[in-house]
């Protein structure tokens, strides 16, 4: 589905620039900590920009996920026209789950082995995984918003508190993207496809999905407040994923 990108010269035209950026910041040893931090940020930003550029140049992947979103919601619309609130929110989060698996899966699977070796020689694993987490978060935020709009268009819109709902959708999309980014790294290293991501991810994501569902079931009623503890717990689990990725990714990274 995602061919080896080494034959997409166009996507990698900026490579020499990238090499210059990363190489410079890696080789120069700074005595000053603050400069080091800014170097770090620069590395992360450069890797992030590379992913963004690839996404913009090879738009078929982005549109592929978009089509997946549209087609799934359309099929759902054919199957079930006006679901009640409980079903509506349940279906919404299940769709988000599958979208995030599809959107995030390619982030590591698209990197060829030789390119990973190249990254290995110029950036630290922490910076690399942070850049990936950042990019996938952004991608998933866009996808969540789009799928929310489409979902609301096709399958009625029973939500009363739109702002709170958008906030929860963003928070949920972010949580999903973080967990599945790390699992994509595992799947890519195990040379497996996206199916193993689902197997690995579902048991881990169940508590977060339950938190999201119970939090977002309050958006149908103006009188019920969104439970703050659920939102805080989701934030805490997101922080946990980021920390674990930082600790564990270096072990995946070395071959």
């Amino acid at each position: 589905m995602y061919p080896d990108s080494s034959n997409h010269g166009g996507g990698l035209r900026n490579y020499s620039k990238l090499k210059y950026f990363l190489g410079n910041s890696f080789l120069r040893i700074c005595p000053n900590k603050s400069i080091e931090l800014s170097k770090k940020m620069k590395q992360i930003f450069t890797l992030f920009k590379k992913d963004l550029l690839l996404e913009i140049r090879q738009q078929y992947a982005f549109y592929g996920v978009l089509l997946y979103v549209g087609a799934t919601i359309f099929v759902l619309y054919m199957a079930i026209e006006s679901p009640d609130n409980r079903t509506w929110i349940g279906l919404f989060w299940i769709i988000q789950l599958f979208i995030s698996i599809n959107a995030v899966a390619k982030s590591f699977l698209q990197e060829s082995r030789s390119r990973m070796l190249y990254y290995h020689s110029i950036v630290s694993p922490q910076n690399f995984v942070l850049a990936k987490l950042l990019f996938n978060s952004l991608l998933m935020l866009v996808m969540s918003l789009l799928s929310m709009v489409l979902f609301s268009l096709f399958l009625t819109y029973p939500v009363q508190k739109t702002v709170a709902f958008i906030g929860l959708v963003f928070l949920g999309g972010w949580s999903l993207s973080l967990v599945f980014t790390f699992l994509a790294a595992i799947a890519a290293k195990a040379q497996q496809n996206a199916a193993i991501m689902a197997i690995l991810g579902f048991p881990i994501i169940i508590p977060q999905l339950l938190l999201l569902m119970s939090a977002s079931s309050t958006v149908f009623n103006l009188k019920v407040a969104v439970p703050l503890t659920n939102v805080l717990m989701l934030f805490a689990s997101d922080v946990l994923v980021i920390l674990l990725s930082l600790i564990l990714f270096p072990f995946l990274w070395k071959d």
């Binding site: 195990a190 339950l210 689990s237 674990l244 564990l248």
Partner: peptide, 27 residues
């Protein structure tokens, strides 16, 4: 590779197992 990736997933998943056991009964 098998050992390393298995260990990584083992640790990652276990870190979520305990919160799950605390969170779900509250919901």
């Amino acid at each position: 590779k098998k050992a390393r990736i298995g260990a990584v997933y083992n640790i990652f998943a276990f870190a979520f197992l305990f919160p799950a056991i605390w969170i779900i009964p509250r919901l």
